[in-house]
Design a protein around this nucleic acid. Structure first.
Length: 1028
RNA sequence: GCCUAGGUGGUGGAAUGGUAGACACGUGACACUUAAAAUGUCAUGAACGUAAGUUUGUGCGGGUUCGAGUCCCGCCCUAGGCACCA
């Protein structure tokens, strides 16, 4: 899974300089190598971390899981252990709390890197994987992680991928019943077809399937039936445009493609990526879109990861509306174009229809013959689309098709344009252009001079008047006055009276807004040569509170846009009480935008000076009988009134389930001579051996090079890298089972992963796919929870000490082997836990790690001393510290705040070092530290305890010792700290006050002053407020 | 452009609206030592002060509060995600 590096030759990396090695503390008596290897040998022999199967224990289950690693050729780097040690800390603590803990490890070894490695080094991928796994395992074991090694899995093992294939076949043999909201066997769909065709069938399908009757179904040839069923199966074969990488000779998933300098390139290698149509296997993940979305509500995942999945699924509710087409030379009413919109409320603002070039091409293919220039544009733009991923900054282009569409509301003729900015794959490939209320349509309309029709009026209610009902109604104008040099006229009222505003005014009886605007211009500023450019048709409803007059106004406002011919001026005729209240100032429109804060004035500025569309919610206007509705309500009403249908769309696409590669799970299907697909009955269908697993470059997988395979009609693509990792956590529940992927009893017992730790970068890949498979298996009663991972915590990256990502390119990779050699595994683990918050990216520091080592040395020395002194007396201060530590560590492990748990342990150590302490009480300290530094604590523990530490009971904090007797609290005067007092815990207000007022430094401050009040927060603070 | 998370000493970082900088690294001084390392003790945000102490200080500007790193408004910067999804 963590396959970030490009696999190259295995080469020992030693980033630690000689000078660093010197910094390692001198070993006195503590010898981690000796202790750790002895303890690890014992673990290897006694297997204390074996998880019990459900029948063999009465303990409650707890399943802690680290993401399965991809065993790359370079071995572990120091980033890997971050999630492994975290999982290990949780697992060890949960065991002591009495749970039957499952903490397994395995390898996900199919995929590109192993294959690249094999090609470059001329070794079979199987051998390369075995080598890499051996390296990984040696390194993992040196870290002292408490895995149940008996449950180890490897996704490339035929005994494992047999079940990956088995699940694939189950998907292939299923469709999604939209009424029951679950996967159902394809057999039952066939029997429905046999009884009544596909009319009213509640089955999720790709695209629109033509309706057929019972008879028609029965008359279909086997091949036709196969093709029809392919539209419904959850694993299906189809043709799709994919990301094709010529250099790698393979198709790439969207998340494997990144933006390069000249268009998209492969994440691995940086080779150019183009679009290509190719035959593919897909998984119909879109059938589960809603459940994948709603399931997020029931899991404890980081919000940002949920957000990423939410955006990726991209649910949007909208409407499909048909526009009848008027094609020159063809009879009317025959053709129509369907658009998808989430803003059906803006329907009356439509001034053009925009279609994707791909849709235009399909019309041409169906017999439409447009002007040559239109056909040429269509072809060109399709080619552009195929070359690159979409770029939002690209200029919008388009041509008029000569076709008109009839507006379903007004009956008006609306031009249809082919454009480059409509996406072919989303919605219907056609949109209604509403430039007044959509930024993209606005940009396009500006470019081609298309009309802009405003049909949503914003509603402005200032928050300070929201609750009021006593409005005085007034008709007003707001004028945007432009000087010949483009500057904007503003009135600066100063900070108290509303700051900078545009020119406003009240419409007197019998006046038009234009007249009002010009009159006010003259009266307030003296300018006389203004020309009216435009007046808003719409009246904006603006409720505000005039502080100076103490009145709430409902201002029904019209906008007026005025341009001055020149700056000629007469005397302004201000009323006496207005004089000197404001200054007339000319500013740039950008300046105005910055300083004007009134929303309505800003809107006038946006509309006239910046000319940006209004995309928010408001009131429907100039839309016939719908005017006056709120835009939210109007969505549904207007869509239905014009015969549209409400639909839900998703951004997420079906997942391509194929790689044109050798090193993957074979697809267990074959085609006979008639191209009929059959299942492979005996699983696993093993990957055949071959010497040439290089890509064919044709789009077929390397398996096509094997004559016997090809002859057998087998699929030449293999499954993608994420196939094996989509269900591996279930295999751990019963890894040795030969008959099932896991026994029913074990699945019921373990249920799901309780805590899953790994990288957040898998949010839209592995994590989403695993959730999908889990839901699918649940539909068949094979698992019993809706979600596979109850809690997920994403670790932060460990950066190199230079703050960059660790990479061979920079030569800054830290190898855990080196760290363990110098400092020992316990120190490495402790430092990884201590270095910072688990979820944050933190640079590795060769300087700071010595602190962790020093702590362990002190612990070790104290342990030996405790053993030698053998006292029964423990100082009260030590007991208190230990019991507070129990509290803190228990809480911190539960919330993955390992760094603060370690800090508290260090604090405790500082107290214990100089205290007298009994073996019994020191044992408690060892227990609490055990999850972090298991070797040294187990070693010390076993000096005087018979029972093993890992089965000892997690200690509980005794209230007797955690309760405080005295507290030292601060005394503030007017919020500033002036002294401390130590008073009994939970002191009364009176006694605290008394002590506070007696404090020496405090007395200095209050002498001769009047005390206004005293605030006392128990056990926190005393604040004395005095008259300054 | 949009969404999400952040911005605290020389460094990693800590802090339920209540004594900012816990813990650790580094640095300085001292002890031990022929010496160095290791270890131990003390100090360590900045400025002023012999000191007691004072001022100032959690990206910037405002606000709420007896009291703001924490809450609210606006801005700047960094990281991650999405990016013509109608």
């Amino acid at each position: 899974m963590a396959r970030a590096q490009k696999t190259q030759n295995i080469k020992k990396i030693s980033p630690l300089k000689k000078s660093d090695v010197k910094k390692a503390p001198m070993i006195t008596t503590y010898d981690p190598k000796k202790i750790e290897s002895a303890i690890q040998k014992k673990w290897e022999k006694e297997k204390p971390f074996k998880a019990f199967s459900s029948a063999k224990t009465k303990k409650k289950p707890f399943y802690a899981l680290s993401m399965i690693p991809y065993p790359s050729g370079t071995g572990l780097h120091i980033g890997h252990p971050r999630s492994y040690t975290a999982t290990d800390i949780v697992a060890r603590q949960k065991r002591m709390e009495g749970f039957n803990v499952l903490n397994p490890m395995g390898y996900d070894a199919f995929g590109l890197p192993a294959e690249q490695f094999a090609i470059q080094n001329k070794v079979h991928p199987k051998k390369a994987v075995a080598m890499n796994v051996a390296t990984f395992e040696r390194q993992l074991k040196k870290l002292g992680l408490s895995f149940d090694w008996d449950r180890k899995i490897n996704t490339t093992d035929p005994e494992y991928y047999k079940w990956t294939q088995w699940i694939f076949l189950k998907l292939y043999n299923s469709y999604y019943d939209t009424k029951k909201q679950k996967a159902t066997s394809i057999e039952s769909l066939i029997s429905i077809f046999e009884k009544r065709g596909n009319k009213d069938v509640s089955a999720y399908a790709s695209g629109e399937v033509q309706e057929f009757s019972k008879q028609e179904w029965l008359q279909m040839t086997p091949l036709q039936k196969q093709e029809t069923l392919m539209r419904y199966r959850l694993a299906y074969e189809g043709i799709a445009e994919v990301n094709w990488c010529e250099e790698l000779g393979t198709v790439l998933a969207n998340d494997e493609v990144v933006d390069g300098k000249d268009g998209p390139v492969s994440e691995r290698g940086g080779y150019p990526v183009t679009k290509k149509n190719i035959r593919q296997w897909f998984l119909r993940i879109t059938a589960y879109a809603d459940r994948l979305l709603s399931g997020l509500n029931e899991i404890e995942w980081p919000e940002h990861i949920k957000e990423i999945e939410k955006n990726w699924i991209g649910r949007s509710e909208g409407a499909e509306i048909s526009f009848k087409l008027d094609i020159p030379g063809q009879s009317e009413n025959k053709h129509s174009v369907k658009v998808f919109t989430t803003r059906a409320d803006t329907l009356f603002g439509v001034t053009f229809i925009a279609i994707s070039p791909e849709l235009a091409q399909s019309w041409i293919d169906a017999g439409w013959s447009p002007d040559v220039s239109v056909a040429r544009y269509t072809k060109q733009t399709i080619q552009e689309h195929q070359k690159a991923t979409f770029d939002a900054t690209q200029k919008k282009t388009g041509v008029y098709t000569g076709v008109y569409a009839k507006h379903p509301g007004t009956g008006e003729n609306i031009p249809v344009w082919v454009t480059n900015y409509v996406l072919p794959g989303y919605g219907t490939g056609a949109i209604m252009g509403v430039p007044a209320h959509d930024e993209r349509d606005f940009e396009f309309a500006k470019e081609y001079g298309l009309p802009i029709k405003n049909v949503i009026d914003p509603v402005y209610i200032r928050p300070d008047v929201i609750a009021r009902t006593d409005f005085t109604k007034k008709h007003k104008v707001v004028s945007l006055v432009e000087a010949p040099d483009g500057k904007i006229l503003t009135m600066n009222w100063g900070p108290k009276l509303g700051g900078r505003l545009l020119l406003g005014g009240t419409i007197e009886k019998g006046e038009t807004p234009e007249q009002t605007a010009l009159r006010e211009l003259k009266e307030e500023t003296g300018y006389v040569h203004g020309d009216i450019v435009s007046v808003s048709e719409e009246t904006f409803d603006y409720k505000y509170f005039a502080t100076s007059k103490n009145v709430a106004y409902q201002a029904l406002t019209r906008f007026v846009h005025i341009k001055l011919r020149d700056l000629e001026k007469e005397e302004a005729s201000l009323e006496e009480n207005e004089k000197g209240l404001f200054k007339v100032e000319w500013v740039s429109k950008e300046h105005a935008k910055k300083e004007i804060v009134e929303v309505l004035h800003l809107y006038a500025l946006d509309l006239y000076a910046f000319q940006t569309p209004f995309c928010g919610e408001g009131v429907i206007a100039r839309s016939g009988e719908f005017s006056g509705l709120s835009s939210l309500d109007a969505r549904k009403v207007i869509a239905e009134a014009v015969g549209g249908t409400l639909v839900t769309r998703y951004k997420m696409r079906d997942a391509i389930f194929a790689r044109q590669r050798y090193w993957g799970e074979p697809v267990p299907l074959y085609k006979d001579a008639q191209a009929i697909i059959h299942e492979v009955k005996k699983l696993p269908l093993t990957l055949p051996n071959t010497a040439s697993y290089e890509p064919t470059g044709t789009g077929e997988g390397p398996l096509a090079n094997i004559p016997a395979w090809k002859k057998g009609g087998y699929e030449t693509n293999t499954m993608p890298g994420w196939a094996g990792s989509s269900w591996y956590y279930l295999r751990y529940m019963d890894a040795a089972n030969k008959k099932k992927f896991a026994d029913e009893k074990e699945i019921r017992y373990w249920k799901h992963v309780d805590i899953y730790l790994g990288g957040g970068e898998h949010a839209t890949g592995h994590l989403l796919y695993a959730r999908f498979w889990h839901k699918f298996l649940k539909d068949y009663g094979l698992v019993h929870t809706e979600e596979p991972f109850k809690k997920f915590v994403a670790h932060g990256m460990i950066l190199a000490s230079d703050g960059r990502k660790m990479s061979k390119r920079w030569g800054n990779v830290v190898n855990p082997d080196d760290v363990i050699n110098i400092y020992g595994a316990d120190t490495a683990r402790l430092y990884i836990a201590f270095m910072g918050p688990y979820t944050e990216a933190i640079p590795w520091s060769e300087e700071s790690i010595v602190g962790s080592r020093r702590f362990i040395e002190r612990l070790y020395k104290k342990g030996l001393r405790v053993n030698a002194e053998n006292t029964t007396k423990t100082d009260l201060s030590a007991l208190k510290a230990i019991h507070k530590l129990i509290q803190k560590v228990s809480l911190d492990i539960a919330s993955c705040s390992f760094n603060t748990a370690v800090a508290k342990a260090m604090e405790t150590m500082n107290i214990l070092e100089s205290a007298s302490i009994s073996k019994k009480d020191f044992s408690v300290f060892l227990q609490v530290l055990y999850p972090f530094v298991p070797h040294v604590t187990e070693y010390l523990w076993s000096q005087w305890n018979k029972e093993p530490i890992h089965t000892s009971k997690w200690p509980r904090a005794d209230k007797k010792y955690t309760r405080e007797e005295n507290v030292t609290i601060g005394v503030q005067i007017n919020g500033k700290l002036r002294g401390n007092i130590t008073i009994p815990f939970n002191s009364s207000e009176d006694s605290a006050k008394k002590h506070a007022l007696e404090e020496e430094n405090v007395r200095k401050y209050i002498e001769g002053k009047t005390i206004l009040k005293v605030i006392y927060v128990q056990n926190r603070i005393v604040n004395i407020v005095i008259k300054p």
